[in-house]
Amino acid sequence: MAQADRRGSAAQKILIGLALLSALGLAAVIVGRILIGGMPAEGLPAEQRTGLLFQVGRLFELGQPSDFLWYGLALLTLGSAAGVAFSRNIIYSAFSLLGAFLGVAAMYVYLGAPFLAVTQVLIYIGGVLVLILFAVMLTSHIRDVKVTNSALGLGPGAVVLLACLGLLTVVAGGTPWKQLPAAPLTDRTADIGTAFLSTYLLPFEIASVILLATLIGAIVIARKDDPADAGGPPSPADGQRTRAEAPSQETR
């Protein structure tokens, strides 16, 4: 009796399983028809297929996924730049600059210049942005929004903004620029190094001299003038003090 029960329940289970399977199959067919659009779609040209997958595929025919990503990055760049230009608080401006620099680095990646992108991140974000944040926090009364980032000449500024944007956009879009055939993206970092040390050797050396001059100049300009040794020959006491301080500076 119990065996028959078990057999009956096993048959019930099989039946239920079969029903579930057929329901799943039916659902799969329905979903497949929605996605692909029925069997005749196989022979149709791509433009006349109606399935959801083909609609999505057609969306991608408008552009590669990387193109859509590019629009997002352009939005990041320009949104951050607008934040820099329009923000009422200089701190927000400085942090918006981070997004603008990152977006520009991403543009370099799209343009096949990965070395430049890394340089952008290292120098602009790691160097210039930190310098700017230092300057902001050392100089302004940060909490006073009115003082830190007040604006003047909003009218002329808006005129220049719109005029530049309109003129440059019309020129950029309307000029038939020379187009190279699309080349595969290759890593040309080694070529850049070679160019720096052969074709561009003189500018390279001048740039290093400029950096040295900048280093010294920035220290000289930003140094706080010590009122003790401002003008006049140093007194013997001054000389003794410098000699006394010198070892401590070396140990530091």
Binding site: V84, A85, L161, L162
Partner: peptide
């Protein structure tokens, strides 16, 4: 071009 315009706007209007 948009980046340049925003930068020019920033240079013109900022007192800081």
């Amino acid at each position: 071009a948009a980046l340049f315009s925003l930068g020019a706007f920033c240079v013109i209007t900022r007192k800081n």
